[in-house]
């Protein structure tokens, strides 16, 4: 069973506004695809379509050779998980970390109830958080820590595809780097296929194998990373890349 994702002719209309227009995209198994584009280009909508939060008006999403329909099976739900942008809003404020982590574990019968606590501790260790976090509520954590908890929740159900929707854009640069490293390491360790959305070219360059550029609801370029950053095919990609502020290079 290959963990490849195929998106075919997806169109999404939001009351007359075309958010996605005949989008075709393919992510090879165990690779990371970076989706870039400016605000309003439809990146997040595409992520929601893959995650099953938005039902497309046309087209289909296939994962591991299965068509994902409006109502997904439990296995299909389990296979695709998502990490969101805003660390303040991605955890239920009334739940402890233990509740947050164990919900998916129990629902998908990942571990028997007797091993639940052990598993929660393992998950926290994976994202470099202390065990005593289990009894605390989300407000007791910083933005970066919350994002780690959200990542732990996403990987708790042992997904095959992880969608990360701007997971670091609300974080400070120093924290951003550690979260990116964490995601990269987990991806290697768990052999994940990843859809990584960001407007930050630096972040995309750091984590992705392939880059896709979106503009106004369409994919306008898909290239391997090395090629994209050196010789982008589309005019617009070139504009995007040249607009990124760069550090002047000084001799160190």
């Amino acid at each position: 069973m290959s963990d490849a994702l195929q998106i075919k002719n997806i169109t999404v209309n939001y009351g007359g506004f075309i958010a996605l227009n005949q989008v075709n995209l393919q992510i090879d198994a165990h690779t990371t695809l970076g989706l870039v584009g400016e605000s309003g280009s439809g990146k997040s909508t595409l992520a929601k379509v893959v995650a099953g939060l938005v039902t497309p008006d046309e087209g289909e999403v296939r994962f591991s050779e299965q068509v994902l329909r409006k109502r997904r099976t439990r296995m299909q739900h389990k296979a695709i998980q998502m990490v969101f942008q805003n660390p303040d809003a991605s955890l239920n404020p009334k739940h402890t970390v233990r509740q947050i982590l164990s919900e998916g574990l129990l629902f998908h019968h990942i571990v028997p109830r007797s091993q639940l606590m052990d598993r929660c501790r393992e998950l926290l260790a994976l994202v470099h958080l202390d065990e005593d976090a289990l009894v605390r509520y989300p407000y007791a954590f910083s933005g970066g820590q919350r994002q780690r908890i959200a990542i732990a929740r996403a990987i708790s159900v042992e997904p095959n595809l992880l969608i990360a929707d701007e997971p670091t854009s609300a974080l400070d640069v120093s924290v951003q780097l550690s979260v990116l490293e964490l995601l990269h390491r987990l991806k290697e360790k768990l052999n994940l296929t990843m859809l990584f959305i960001s407007h930050d070219m630096g972040v995309i360059n750091a984590v992705c194998d392939t880059v896709a550029v979106m503009r106004q609801g369409r994919i306008i370029e898909v290239s391997p990373k090395e090629q994209f950053f050196l010789h982008p095919k589309a005019d617009y990609s070139y504009q995007l890349l040249s607009a990124v502020p760069r550090m002047p290079i000084f001799n160190r």
Binding site: K48, A51, G52, L53, R72, R74, Q76, H77, K78, I80, Q81, M82, F84, Q85, N86, A89, S90, L91, N92, E103, G104, F107, H108, A150, R153, A154, V157
Partner: peptide, 17 residues
Amino acid sequence: KQEWVASAKVLGLPDSR
């Protein structure tokens, strides 16, 4: 519209839950 509700949906939890 909060993201934790979205993530619960992505986990596949039924609406009742």
